[in-house]
Amino acid sequence: MTSSTVVAFDASAPWQLNEQVSLRDESFGALAYHHGTRRLVFLKSRELVAVVRQLSDFDSADAAILALVPEGQRARYSTALTSLVRSEILCER
């Protein structure tokens, strides 16, 4: 039985791409590979890739989404970031 740490996503906190993750741009968006957990994650929009790459430039995930994502899409992108935090693709700064 392996233990895992459950990380909650606080969108008001500062986040960044995990240092153990390699991001490879693809036509559909990008592939993210976590070298520690061996998880492979498909980011299926280029806008999401832009948000992930630029997260470290913002004081919070909310600020990044506000600046980079059109208004009608923000809830969807917040859900996507929640999923990426759960997969440990993103980590808190």
Partner: peptide
């Protein structure tokens, strides 16, 4: 023309 998942994991 919004319902597709943005993230999938393997």
């Amino acid at each position: 023309e919004s319902e597709e998942l943005l993230v999938e994991e393997v």
